[in-house]
């Protein structure tokens, strides 16, 4: 009993540590595989989805300003010099704008309130 208590004072139990390690291992494995995807599959196009439907697909090589206005709100997506970013959004949290520029295959910008995703694909 006292042994058990001592362990708790020190920190986490063995199984709890195991859970944390397992979660971190999964995270690292997914991160590495994501990086491998980024490195080996060249980025080619930008897929924009609204709702769960494809809205528009644009080549990453193009320079384009895409304005999306719908019942959810307004988003302005910029594709320039093979970089993609959200210039403006009238959503409440602006997480998509703060995400900044994306350049690699598999990366995406999400605007949850407007049900919008911008993903770089091969």
């Amino acid at each position: 009993m006292s042994d058990e208590n001592n362990k708790e004072v020190k920190g986490l139990k063995k199984k709890e540590k195991l859970l944390i390690v397992a979660v971190i291992v999964v995270a690292v494995v997914v991160m590495i595989s994501g990086t491998v995807i980024n490195a080996f599959i060249p980025a080619g196009k930008v897929i924009i989805t609204v709702g769960n439907k494809e809205y528009e697909t644009v080549s990453l090589k193009e320079n384009k300003r895409i304005v999306i206005e719908n019942e959810y709100g307004e988003n302005i997506i910029i594709i320039k010099d093979e970089q993609v970013f959200m210039e403006r959004a009238d959503c409440p949290n602006k997480t998509c704008v703060k995400k900044g520029k994306i350049t690699k295959t598999g990366q995406s910008i999400v605007c949850l309130p407007h049900r919008l995703t911008v993903t770089i694909s091969d």
């Binding site: 997914v30 991160m31 989805t49 769960n52 995406s108 999400v110």
Partner: peptide
Amino acid sequence: VAVILLGNKWLFVSYLPLLLISGV
């Protein structure tokens, strides 16, 4: 839920690591 509602499976790979580690 985001992957299902937004219909974009790329999200899983790009966001899972960050969400797992921030969850911990």
